[in-house]
Amino acid sequence: MKVFSSETEFEYSWDEVSTANWRKYCPWNEKSTHVIAVDTLSRSIDPDTGVLRTERLITCSQSAPKWLQPFLGGHEMSHVHETSYVNPTARTVTMCSTNLTWSDLLSVRETVTYRPSPGAPHSSTRFEQNAQITALCGGWQKVRNGIEQFSVERFQQNATKGKEGFEMVLEMSRKVFAQEREKARA
């Protein structure tokens, strides 16, 4: 098993971040182009806690290195299932994702949280990401290690792109919201 973790801060309020998060993979994000579709499977509010629970199906086009392709089969698209929880009282967004494609070969479990930054809770949001990557194929230690190593590296690349792309979405969202407020006033 390999573990990937990262954390960063976004200089936007938790309200802005948690709203923009729903359109993280829109055309404003020019970096995360491997995400080609995001579909909502279910959505509900838990009556006891007020937590908004959402399930989404995320579709990616991602090419694996040549040496890995025989093990992966001919999939051009891969799917990820994500369950997220927005707790409006605690002001947290938690997103838990797991891979659907290649699940007999590889288990990728990712948890992401957004919470107000302890240092600047009104203007800044802390992002934490944690992923556990385990190759499941029996036998070949070398192949297992290779798959895990490749997955961690890919994760790292996508995390960097994800942050850059999300910054673009946050900036555009702030502009659009300001314009809408302006229009409403006029």
């Binding site: 806690t49 399930e55 799917h79 299932h81 707790n87």
Partner: peptide, 23 residues
């Protein structure tokens, strides 16, 4: 043909719900 794999993933959600929707 991806409905079954989605359903399988959805079936394994109980623990997450218990952790993130506790009162």
């Amino acid at each position: 043909g991806i409905d079954t794999m989605v359903e399988e993933a959805r079936a394994n959600q109980k623990e997450l719900d218990a952790e993130y929707m506790k009162t």
